[in-house]
Design a protein around this nucleic acid. Structure first.
Lengths: 128, 128
DNA sequence: CCCGATCGTTTCGGTTCCGGATCAATTCTA
DNA sequence: TAGAATTGATCCGGAACCGAAACGATCGGG
């Protein structure tokens, strides 16, 4: 699985993806909201408010508000923990899977044909 | 330059990078501020307010305010256009190059060892 | 030399987000 | 079972951001 990415390609990948995301009419999430969404979908459950706050090193109210927004969009779902009813478990949704699939496609599309742009005379190690 | 990235790897790359960015004590830029910074550094000059606004499809005041923040951080510099003094040209700075170099390293670090995590039994095409 | 067009900025009103403190509900402990 | 601890939500004041509209400065055509 040759996965290689030099500094310039990394920045160009990021630029293209952000550009595509801003252009997209879909509700664009903030950095923290996106991070929460990715954590819920890519790391093993269970996911609680305090757990997400600790993992992202942000405050609990910030997580609560982000969950309000994300669940309002339908890409996430809150569910009471039956074993400890103080806790709230965060679950995935179909809409969230669709959203992230499209987001992944955006990133991949931004990365295609990225390694073949090196101008022959450029110093391969210099960024700027 | 074999650059390959499947959907799951793309999302995981994004998650790790966002996480590292949030943890970093450095002033975390918004999505649009980052996009402006990357456009200035990765696309050929000249860069004007209206040009950036058009490229990012955001309003001119949003660009002006982002330039206020970014130039305040020292990662960008405004300079009057001598040929057309209505225009403002946006230039790079050393601090900006340093900032983006570190950002690029963050992305690359998030991407290292990303392709060797496929569990053998997983359906390679299914995201969730 | 104007007068319209264009540029970036500022003003304005409104929305969103933040962290600390606080709260009610629930669980744990002595 | 009473009190301490924990969890998530809410309140609060402040900061950041947004787009539309208005503004001054500048350029260009007639």
């Amino acid at each position: 699985m040759g996965f290689d990415l030099d500094d310039m390609e990394a920045l160009e990948l990021w630029r293209r993806t952000l550009l595509a995301g801003i252009h997209r009419s879909a509700p664009d999430l903030s950095v923290r909201q996106t991070a929460i969404l990715l954590c819920v979908y890519l790391t093993p459950p269970p996911h609680t408010v305090r757990g997400l706050a600790a993992r992202l090193k942000i405050s609990k109210p910030a997580v609560t508000r982000a969950l309000d927004t994300l669940s309002g969009l339908g890409v996430l779902r809150r569910k009471a923990d039956e074993n400890d009813r103080r806790s709230v478990l965060v679950h995935r949704t179909v809409a969230g899977s669709v959203y992230l699939s499209e987001f992944a496609e955006t990133i991949v599309a931004a990365g295609t044909g990225l390694g073949s742009e090196k101008s022959p005379g450029s110093d391969p190690g210099a960024l700027f």
